[in-house]
């Protein structure tokens, strides 16, 4: 604990600093998610939910793809088992995030683990997964995750209030913010051949699956790319 300071007030200001830093790093992703939140809110109302229930979907489920697809299924009158299996399928990549973050989060107190687990979206994983166990900071992750959660709630609320007027997502080009942030996070971490190959395989496969309209392309291309990257590092005897 080299950064330990003698007086408590500075520990509080350190928390605030870390939370602000987290909220700032995730800000472009928070902005980019606004149209999706609006869409999630308006689709929930369109699926026949009361306003309060529609907001509860965003507050409790807090997962863009699950909410968008799920509301479509509810509207179409799908059975509960179809809905839950689809949810499990769409959310499966979070298991990978959870396993990856285990060494950094599992030693934290229960309430901190529960909070970060609840907030562990693609976006929170993106801004915290490249940190080492030593660099990882609960308040940084919480600031990022919770600010993102608040934006999702407000965006959903706007969608619920706006109701039928569903935004045209492509019109804003905000999805580029996701691409820009993820590129900015991933590329500096490419320091070994095995990581470079992982990135290239994930790129090629995910684009191929996306163009072919294959469901689950993200998790499928990730797992294949990770396996190939891992195999290369073993064959080349790369240091960890």
């Amino acid at each position: 604990m080299s950064d330990r300071t003698p007086n408590p007030p500075s520990s509080q200001s350190r928390r605030l600093y870390q939370m602000t830093r987290g909220a700032l790093i995730i800000l472009p992703l928070s902005i980019a998610v606004v149209p999706w939140g609006i869409l999630a809110g308006s689709l929930a109302v369109e699926a026949g939910l009361f306003d309060f229930q529609a907001q509860a979907v965003s507050a409790l489920v807090f997962a863009g793809s699950v909410q968008l697809v799920g509301m479509g299924l509810i509207k179409a009158g799908a059975t509960l088992s179809t809905l839950l299996l689809t949810t499990l399928f769409l959310t499966s990549r979070h298991l990978l995030y959870s396993a990856t973050m285990r060494t950094r989060i599992s030693h934290l107190p229960l309430h901190q683990r529960l909070l970060l687990g609840f907030l562990l979206t693609d976006e929170l994983f993106a801004v915290s997964s490249h940190q080492t166990r030593k660099e990882f900071d609960f308040w940084y992750a919480f600031g990022a995750g919770f600010s993102f959660y608040l934006v999702w709630q407000l965006a959903s609320l706007s969608g619920i209030v706006l109701g039928q007027s569903i935004p045209d997502l492509d019109q804003y080009g905000l999805d580029f913010a996701v691409a820009a942030t993820f590129i900015a996070i991933v590329l500096p971490s490419v320091k070994k051949l095995s990581v470079l190959v992982t990135v290239i395989i994930a790129l090629l496969l995910s684009v191929l699956f996306s163009v072919q309209g294959i469901e689950g392309g993200i998790i499928l291309s990730s797992l294949i790319a990770m396996t190939i990257g891992y195999a290369i590092s073993i064959v080349r005897k790369e240091p960890l």
Binding site: T100, D122, S129, F176, T198, V199, S206, I219, M226
Partner: peptide
């Protein structure tokens, strides 16, 4: 060691289609 590749793989699998798959085609 395997999970070490989750970040580069999963984040790339999210950003790449946004960049290369526009309006229904490559």
């Amino acid at each position: 060691h395997f999970l070490h590749y989750t970040g580069p793989a999963a984040l790339t699998a999210i950003w790449a289609p946004i960049v290369f798959h526009r309006e229904g085609s490559l």
